[in-house]
């Protein structure tokens, strides 16, 4: 069985069980390892990718769901908000162990792509599905604000 979709801007066909979670299809079949496995139940957000621009948990999304649609992983981030988020992450020294940060960045980017000036409440709402056991939360919040400020026109 194969599934065709747009992966990071490239037409892609993956030959895999259509029930295989997108997380494992992207990691083990497409070979993009930036997206992480944390819980397998959409509880921690480490596996967050964008499906047609919206953040989803790839660990519970069957590969078949994405047929004909656009999937973006951390490796494919290219938008202005995405680059601003990544730059702010480095500038504010957000990562500690770093394992959850791909998912955090995907959620933060999706937030900024729809809300250019998020409030703290907006950040709580968009980011509370992403766990960081190192508790880098203060810096995540500050980095999202910094990224928003950096792309203000």
């Amino acid at each position: 069985m194969s599934t065709s979709f747009d992966l990071n801007g490239k037409p892609t066909t993956l030959d895999a069980d259509p029930k295989m979670p997108l997380l494992w299809a992207v990691r083990e079949v497409a070979g993009l390892t930036g997206t992480k496995f944390g819980c397998g139940m959409a509880l921690c957000g480490a596996c967050t990718v964008h499906l047609d621009g919206k953040p989803i948990r790839s660990c519970i999304t069957p590969l078949s769901t994405v047929a004909g649609r656009k999937v973006t992983t951390i490796e494919g981030l290219a938008s202005r908000p995405a680059k601003a988020v990544q730059a702010a992450w480095v500038k504010l020294q957000v990562p500690q162990c770093g394992y959850c940060q791909s998912g955090q960045i995907m959620s933060a980017t999706a937030l900024l792509e729809t809300n250019s000036k998020p409030t703290d409440a907006d950040i709580d709402s968009a980011m509370s599905g992403n766990i960081c056991r190192c508790a880098t939360y203060s810096r995540i919040r500050a980095a999202i604000h910094a990224a928003a400020d950096s792309i203000k026109v």
Binding site: E28, G31, L32, T33, G34, T35, K36, F37, T73, I74, E75, L77, Q86, W89, V90, Q93, V94, P95, C97, G98, Y99, Q101, S102, I105
Partner: peptide
């Protein structure tokens, strides 16, 4: 002094054990 691992941990390229791929590897 900025962390030596901050950039790789902000673009998905940092290598964890989860990310190890070797020829013929099984899980």
């Amino acid at each position: 002094v900025p962390r030596v691992d901050a950039a790789a941990k902000s673009d998905g390229s940092a290598q964890f054990t989860l990310d190890v791929v070797l020829p013929g590897m099984l899980v």
